[in-house]
Amino acid sequence: MRDFSANHDWLSINTATIRKQAGAEVPLDRLIDQCAAAGVRAISPWRDQVAAVGLDKVAAQLKALGIGLSGYCRGGFFPAPDAAGLKAALEDNRRAIDEAKTLNAACLVLVVGALPGALNGKAAYTDLARARTEVRDGIAASLEYAREVGMPLAIEPLHPMQAADRACINTLEQSLDLCDELDAQQSGMLGVALDVYHTWWDPKLAQQIARAGDAKNTRLLAYHVCDWLTPTRDLLNDRGMMGDGVIELKKIRGWVEAAGFAGFSEVEIFSSLDWWQRSGEETLATCIERHRSVV
């Protein structure tokens, strides 16, 4: 397993971690400058943040500062109540693939979606099997275009608490089953984004991580870290800083690296009650220290 104690060369910052500072939203161009000042050499920005600043402007800023992308957030949300909605989702994912390619991202992360409308309080239907079928079909269609342009897609399984509204793919096993079905040739164009917040509890986690490495190209395309607090005050927006919770971070990274992953550990923390109330400089300094000591 790699030794991170001497530097933070393999630290990436998902920009959700610092998008709010002292309770206020901060634009992406400023976040990128803060990361550069802290010596962070990779980030993973969100599409809405990029759109607010401008795709070309962000691409130029990243190039000038020598910052790469460990991933791009996000594609997905494939299910829809009707044919028009399904078509619109595919078109939006095509745009997301193009944006990821422009930014030279390592992969486009897919939060696949679930019961359409549930996120806004009223599901258009409650057939979870239908949603999973629409996810499968949406990934298959998007993968065709992703192959054309050379942008890997990374399915991110989300914790079962979000099965209704954000992602009906909830385990690493489900994600890998889709990869095996849709990319049997193990092309490197379809894999997974493993977020410890969503997967640490899974009794099959070690087994499935090892399975992800059983390929000529590992299925592990991105690795996200934070911690699970006890008690958790908000299941969406109370993620912990690494080392403040109960996730066995070094053990899991050992499994991930044994399965062939040699990329960035990407810090992704949603924290409305704690870290989003602090300065970006403090949060980044803590991320660096914990990356060296506990990740």
Rank of each mutant, 00 (worst) to 15 (best):
R2K: 13
F4P: 04
A6Q: 13
A6P: 07
H8D: 02
H8Q: 00
D9I: 06
I13F: 03
T17K: 09
K20T: 09
A22P: 10
G23S: 05
A24L: 15
E25M: 05
P27L: 14
I32Y: 04
I32E: 01
I32W: 04
C35L: 00
A37V: 13
A37Q: 06
V40C: 01
A42S: 02
S44Y: 11
D48R: 13
G54K: 10
L55T: 07
K57Q: 13
A59N: 15
A60K: 10
L65C: 08
G66L: 11
I67A: 08
G68L: 06
S70T: 01
C73V: 12
R74C: 11
R74H: 14
F78P: 02
P79D: 12
A84F: 13
L86F: 15
E91D: 15
D92L: 08
R94T: 12
R94N: 07
R95C: 06
A96D: 03
I97P: 02
I97N: 00
D98M: 14
E99D: 00
T102F: 01
L103T: 08
N104C: 11
A105H: 00
A105C: 09
L108Q: 11
V111N: 02
G113P: 00
L115I: 12
G117F: 08
G117W: 04
A118L: 05
A123K: 04
A123C: 09
T126I: 15
L128D: 12
A131L: 11
I139M: 06
A140Q: 07
Y145G: 05
A146H: 00
E148R: 13
P152V: 07
L153C: 06
L153V: 08
I155D: 09
H159M: 10
E173A: 14
Q174H: 06
S175A: 09
C179N: 01
D180T: 13
D183G: 04
A184D: 12
Q186R: 10
Q186C: 12
S187Q: 12
M189C: 02
L190K: 00
G191K: 02
A193R: 08
D195S: 08
Y197A: 08
Y197N: 09
H198T: 10
T199E: 11
Q208D: 10
D214K: 07
T218M: 08
C226R: 09
D227N: 08
D227S: 09
L229K: 10
T230M: 13
T230W: 09
T232G: 08
R233V: 09
L235W: 12
L235Y: 13
L235I: 14
N237P: 14
D238C: 14
G240R: 02
G240K: 04
M241V: 00
G245R: 08
I247K: 05
E248A: 11
L249W: 02
K250T: 05
K251W: 01
I252A: 03
A258H: 15
A259D: 03
A262G: 11
F264T: 01
S265K: 02
E266C: 11
F270W: 12
S271F: 03
S271M: 00
S272G: 14
S272K: 15
L273P: 14
L273K: 15
L273I: 12
W276Q: 14
G280C: 05
E282K: 00
C287I: 08
C287H: 05
I288K: 13
E289C: 10
V295G: 06
V295L: 09
